[in-house]
Design a protein around this nucleic acid. Sequence first.
DNA 1: CAGCGCTCAGAAAACGTTTTCTTGCTGAGA
DNA 2: TCTCAGCAAGAAAACGTTTTCTGAGCGCTG
Lengths: 342, 342
Amino acid sequence: MNPTIHDVAKQANVSISTVSRVFNNPDSVGKEMRERVLQVIEELGYAPNPFASGLRDNRSMVIVAMIPDIRNSYYAEMLSGIEEVALSKRYNVIICNTIQNEERFLEYVKYFVKKKVDGLIFASTEITEFYKKNFDALNIPVVLASTEGRAWDLPSVRVDDVQASYDATTFLINNGHQEIGFISGPSHLLVPNVQRYEGYRKAMQDHQVPVSEQHVVYAEMTFDAGYEAMSRLYAKMPHLTAVYAASDAMAIGAMKFLHEQGLEVPRHVSVMGFDNLELSRMISPGLTTVAQNIYEIGKSAGELLFQGIENRDQDLQSVTIAHEIIVRGTVRNRRLKSDSER
Amino acid sequence: MNPTIHDVAKQANVSISTVSRVFNNPDSVGKEMRERVLQVIEELGYAPNPFASGLRDNRSMVIVAMIPDIRNSYYAEMLSGIEEVALSKRYNVIICNTIQNEERFLEYVKYFVKKKVDGLIFASTEITEFYKKNFDALNIPVVLASTEGRAWDLPSVRVDDVQASYDATTFLINNGHQEIGFISGPSHLLVPNVQRYEGYRKAMQDHQVPVSEQHVVYAEMTFDAGYEAMSRLYAKMPHLTAVYAASDAMAIGAMKFLHEQGLEVPRHVSVMGFDNLELSRMISPGLTTVAQNIYEIGKSAGELLFQGIENRDQDLQSVTIAHEIIVRGTVRNRRLKSDSER
DNA sequence: CAGCGCTCAGAAAACGTTTTCTTGCTGAGA
DNA sequence: TCTCAGCAAGAAAACGTTTTCTGAGCGCTG
């Protein structure tokens, strides 16, 4: 078995209180004693038993990351950022695939109450009163990642979706496109779809490009749904020159549909995505898209959470992460004559 | 604060021993008492404090999944399977991005000794004596996922790489290909690369197709490395009609190179991958590949681990997961005349 | 020189379980 | 009727910390 604080105390000929103090508040113990204890600790390879400390002061050194699906590389990337900062703080991360499922969520929450996790990063879905109530009951710091929290007074880390979407749309307009269709996420998922829709619409209007519900279709934010959504959009807008999809997965699904219709990207139709997933650069041509620095979102969320853990009554400030247009090969510049003649 | 076992005991007018027994060994307590206690438990929403139980019997109800990189969808998928069975056993999973880094590995291992995790699933790299020694020191059940363990007497869950690779190569041969290049993973990573190489070579030989080192290039198993490896392979084998890559990421990288060279897939060159990543079906044309049921690997590894946790001295039997050829659009059948005339 | 306060270290309580040991009671067999 | 076995429930110890309380020793001040 591992050495305990008693073993160290006996070996160093001090009391266990002294050993504990050496660990937690070294300045409060005299130099010679401290050094003797330190040496024995080293010698025996002593480390405090986390169960005992946990029992004593209800800290588990564990945080929880709640995400919809770890198989989605967006969340995997985010998790990677969270994990990085947790490791540096000597915390562990436990992951929860909520699968957008309230029952499963509850299952986990019930669990955390017992486990006394020290903090929670939530990246799953729209926050409803249901979630908010459960968070409150948990009574630990909560940080939202890539989802909205202002209405519920929860700190969040995310990109400015309105602005990012505005920039993406403007990019298409600046490349000479006017007939720009928009594949939105499902409208019932408020975040981030309202924001991305708003950014798209605002950009169109600001540049005097006509826009209406005729330009928009709604779908789940997946590859398959994007494929299917593109067929609907194409039926509504047979003359579109560009498609802007609210996620890369949808954009790539849309590209597959266009490809099957014999429409070349970007010669006949330009495509713009959102997310900058790893795979966006793997396809040919590479997908032009809006990059969220997802890793950074995870990292910031982690840092924010630890702020809250280390200083329980501090108010946490939401953070906005910068976005960036990544230009690859799926948008054609219609303003270049040579290009349009190709 | 949460109700304790004492609260329950007082409320139900029994001793705490009885309450504990109701939880852990219900049959040993009389019916009426049991029911009274059960009711109070329900009423108060009591649940045992895991620190206290952990302190008492050194069980954490936590298992660890060690993987190279959660951002790699292969491992994300595997993790998803692990997580599923852990949840059903009411265990938590903590993840460790080892990043193929021994120092980082040690950092984690040191941690687990303290945390007293109950089991470990290792999916990182080739097992060396270094790892094996650390596993032994941990003194908990260890299961290997998608890596080899026989030499070290560790149970593993994986596909039969030799057979799978044999099948993939045979598929290409049966489609009329003879000049088949092979993009292997780096030779220093023995598993699974020796096996896949062996399967390829064996299939070629069994079908009387000439094969030599001229047909093979080595690269890291990533998209970028696959791109670069394809350029080397193409230089060595300008007349190849098919490429078989030991991972989908490499295969897709290779496709990008071919595309840039003006070579169409599958018209000029056929491509076959290995893994069946999510993104393999997203590209156009869809990648023909060998499917590992990765989720199943994770799930089986989890189940095997829990066998070991629940029965410590049982010998765990390694498990082989079935593989399958997924036919999509990147392999042309050269035996069909109409096809070759297109 | 006496008394006061301050510093540093030890004693002990508390955290919430699980499980062994003990005890009291019931029922059966002699 | 007495004794012994068996069973059900309670008492108590143990797991390893952290922290508050206590007390000893010492230096400074009046």
